[in-house]
């Protein structure tokens, strides 16, 4: 497990950069709402929460 942790973290880091950068970030930028909440902030917080979740999972399962 331990040998795989660093590559996995680096992959997650690159994915995070991509999700928070142009052009993927533009996908959220539209005049729309979901559950009555504006899409852009909702999308940003959603991606953020997912990153935290995956990071926590990777960190806590490694002995």
């Amino acid at each position: 497990m331990r040998r795989l942790l660093a590559p996995r973290l680096i992959a997650l880091f690159v994915l995070g950069w991509a999700l928070f950068s142009f052009p993927l970030i533009q996908l959220w930028d539209r005049e729309a709402s979901l559950f009555g909440l504006p899409l852009l902030p909702l999308g940003l917080f959603f991606v953020w929460a997912v990153l935290i979740g995956v990071l926590a999972w990777l960190m806590e399962r490694d002995p």
């Binding site: 942790l5 660093a6 973290l9 928070f20 940003l44 990153l51 960190m59």
Partner: peptide, 13 residues
């Protein structure tokens, strides 16, 4: 705050 989020992904490294 997104910057630190990304930085902490690499914290272990």
């Amino acid at each position: 705050y997104l910057g630190p989020m990304l930085a902490m992904i690499l914290a272990w490294v």
